[in-house]
């Protein structure tokens, strides 16, 4: 269990809701849910969530910390914003789901094998390296994220797509060696480092 996780458990022993409010992006909205369920019914991936968004809100209120943070439900969010525009209370549900996912990741509780979790991390790493996404590398990283042999299989399965993209000049093998990038990559990295530092100091403040 990560150190941060232990700290958080200590700090918010009685109220997971308060922990979420303090630490999760847009978490202060969770209490405003009026239990209508329109978010859960609106989600295009709805059938694949073990706990649809409203249930997650209710679980947070009921203090089911582990169940929520280790859930792969939030990782099912396609960011389609259907729930947001339909929510009668204006909860930024998409962002809360992202926030919960991020928080779970930060605490080390996010399901390790969840493909979206993995992909999302790789995506971030990919984009922050040069400031711009390298689609080829991202794709390859993705295919191989479950190990080498699995990666070969996936690559083969995806080869037609790759080929199509390559033929139409929407994918270039050259990207593997160079690719697009920001000129001021170092400046970008400094910005991101600072942003992370500010965010972590806030979390420290909450948990201290």
């Amino acid at each position: 269990m990560s150190n941060l996780n232990t700290q958080m458990i200590e700090k918010y022993r009685n109220s997971f809701l308060r922990e979420v409010e303090a630490n999760v992006e847009e978490g202060e909205w969770v209490k405003m849910c009026m239990q209508c369920g329109v978010c859960s019914g609106s989600c295009p991936f709805g059938p694949h969530w073990e706990h649809p968004p409203q249930e997650i809100f209710m679980m947070i209120r009921a203090g089911k910390r582990d169940d929520v943070l280790t859930s792969d439900s939030m990782w099912m969010c396609t960011s389609c914003y259907n729930c947001i525009v339909r929510c009668p209370r204006g909860l930024p549900i998409t962002h809360i789901m992202h926030g919960l996912a991020h928080y779970a990741h930060r605490l080390g509780l996010a399901p390790k094998e969840n493909p979206t979790h993995k992909f999302a991390i790789k995506f971030w790493d990919n984009l922050t390296r040069t400031g711009r996404v390298n689609e080829l590398k991202l794709g390859l990283a993705l295919y191989f994220m479950n190990g080498f042999s699995e990666g070969i299989k996936t690559s083969l399965k995806m080869k037609d797509i790759g080929l199509g993209m390559w033929k139409t000049k929407r994918l270039s093998p050259m990207e593997i060696v160079g690719g697009h990038k920001c000129k001021d990559v170092s400046g970008l990295h400094k910005i991101l480092a600072k942003a992370r530092e500010i965010e972590e100091s806030k979390a420290q403040k909450f948990s201290g």
Binding site: L17, K31, M32, Q35, M58
Partner: peptide
């Protein structure tokens, strides 16, 4: 009702 929620009153069916 909303004001109650804003103040942190929890409603459980």
């Amino acid at each position: 009702y909303r004001a109650g929620q804003e103040k942190g009153v929890i409603f459980t069916k």
